[in-house]
């Protein structure tokens, strides 16, 4: 069973690339929101305390990225290989962007437009899923679009040298703070 499952998964390098894209999106998003909150925090927290908030952020995003990666790998395992696994770098990258975007869109429609759950999920799926599907389909026809996805997957792994150590340091410090 395990052998069947692993045979349906892409190579480590491809998985790493997609994880890098996920973290690139998550760390990018959270950094924007972090700096939006930063001035407010400085009203009542010192820089050391804000740094602790950032450790929680980094650790959470690294773990959250694994959840998205697991979902994408599940998709790869379930779908026919020719649909996803064989084109994992490109399609996994597009899915890595579409998945968190979908989650944010659902929140956006509920929070800012007072949509109910159903309409919010539908609208987010149409936008995020639609754009992702369109990108995947067009990337078969237009090499530039495929290259765009591939470029992201090839360039973002360099950030893993930053994200992973930060995540490990964060998790270690937070474990000590919470278990100590």
């Amino acid at each position: 069973m395990l052998r069947v499952l692993t045979s349906r998964l892409p190579g480590r390098g491809e998985i790493g690339s997609v994880y890098a894209v996920i973290l690139f999106f998550l760390f990018g998003w959270v950094t924007i929101i972090f700096f939006w909150k930063f001035p407010a925090w400085l009203y009542y927290a010192n820089l050391g305390e804000v740094a602790i908030f950032y450790l929680y952020t980094a650790a959470t995003e690294a773990l959250e990225g694994l959840v998205y990666l697991a979902a994408i790998l599940l998709l790869s395992a379930v779908l026919p290989a020719s649909w996803f696994k064989d084109k994992f770098t490109v399609r996994g990258t597009i899915a890595a962007l579409a998945l968190p975007a979908w989650l944010l869109l659902v929140q956006y429609f509920i929070a800012y437009h007072e949509f109910g759950r159903g309409p919010a999920v539908l609208a987010a799926t149409l936008i995020s899923g639609g754009l992702a599907a369109l990108w995947m389909w067009l990337s078969m026809k237009y090499i530039a679009l495929e290259r765009m996805a591939r470029l992201l997957a090839e360039r973002t792994p360099v950030f893993l040298y930053v994200y992973i150590p930060i995540a490990i340091i964060s998790l270690t410090i937070l474990l000590v703070r919470n278990l100590g």
Partner: peptide, 18 residues
């Protein structure tokens, strides 16, 4: 303000708030 910092936790939280 903006949406939550974490897409996943933010969605779980907003669904509870309803």
């Amino acid at each position: 303000g903006p949406l939550a910092g974490s897409p996943l936790l933010g969605l779980l939280d907003i669904l509870r708030k309803e």
